[in-house]
Each structure stands twice: as structure tokens, then as C-alpha cells.
Deep mutational scan, measured.
Amino acid sequence: VTLFVALYDYEARTEDDLSFHKGSKFQILNSSEGDWWEARSLTTGETGYIPSNYVAPV
């Protein structure tokens, strides 16, 4: 499992996005959609889309 960590805070703009804070960790579920990845937050357990340029591999 590849884990990613948030580099910045992000406020969701749609109900499909995940809001998160810098330092939040994610499991990436689908990275084939270009700049928006489907991810599960390891902090909240919620699933949604995150901007790929806001995260980096742990």
C-alpha cells in the first residue's frame, strides 16, 4: 500500500472532494483520473477526491 501525506491544507469545493489538513495521510484508491485522485483518509476513514499536487509519498 502506497501512503501519501498532505503538503498543504485543502478545503473541499464539491461533495465528492475531501477536506484535509497538512500532515494528513491517505491511501490512494485510484490515481488514473489525472490530477484528482480517489483516496481514503487514514485520519477520518472518509473516501473522496484529492488534488494530487497537494500530496507526496510518505
Rank of each mutant, 00 (worst) to 15 (best):
V1D: 13
V1G: 13
V1L: 13
F4V: 11
F4I: 03
F4Q: 03
F4K: 00
V5R: 04
V5M: 08
V5G: 02
V5L: 06
A6E: 00
L7S: 02
Y8Q: 08
Y8N: 06
D9K: 04
D9L: 03
D9I: 02
Y10R: 03
Y10A: 00
Y10N: 02
E11L: 10
A12K: 08
A12T: 04
A12H: 06
A12N: 05
A12M: 04
R13Y: 07
R13C: 10
R13D: 08
R13A: 11
T14Q: 11
T14Y: 15
E15C: 12
E15T: 12
D17S: 14
L18N: 02
L18Y: 05
L18W: 05
L18P: 00
S19M: 03
S19W: 03
S19E: 04
F20Q: 00
F20R: 00
F20D: 00
F20E: 00
F20N: 00
H21Q: 14
H21N: 13
H21P: 10
H21L: 14
H21F: 12
K22H: 05
K22P: 03
K22V: 10
K22F: 05
G23F: 04
G23H: 05
K25W: 14
K25F: 15
K25S: 07
K25T: 13
F26Y: 02
F26C: 03
Q27F: 14
Q27R: 07
I28W: 02
I28V: 10
L29R: 04
L29V: 08
L29P: 04
N30G: 10
N30I: 07
N30S: 11
S31P: 10
S31L: 10
S31Q: 14
S32D: 11
S32E: 11
G34T: 13
G34I: 12
G34E: 13
D35W: 09
D35T: 10
D35A: 10
D35I: 10
W36D: 04
W36E: 03
W36M: 13
W36R: 14
W36N: 05
W36V: 07
W36C: 08
W37K: 02
W37C: 04
E38F: 15
A39L: 02
A39D: 01
R40G: 02
R40F: 14
R40M: 14
S41F: 06
S41H: 12
S41M: 11
S41D: 15
L42V: 12
L42D: 05
L42H: 06
L42A: 06
T43R: 08
T43C: 09
T43F: 08
T44P: 00
G45A: 04
E46P: 00
E46S: 07
E46V: 08
T47K: 09
T47N: 05
T47C: 10
G48K: 01
Y49L: 14
Y49E: 03
Y49W: 15
Y49P: 02
Y49I: 09
I50G: 00
P51S: 04
P51F: 06
S52Q: 07
S52K: 13
N53R: 12
N53H: 13
N53S: 14
N53C: 10
N53K: 13
Y54P: 01
Y54W: 07
Y54M: 11
V55S: 01
V55H: 01
V55C: 03
A56Q: 10
A56H: 08
A56V: 14
A56S: 09
A56I: 13
A56N: 05
P57F: 06
P57C: 06
P57K: 08
P57Y: 06
V58N: 05
V58R: 02
V58I: 13
V58H: 08
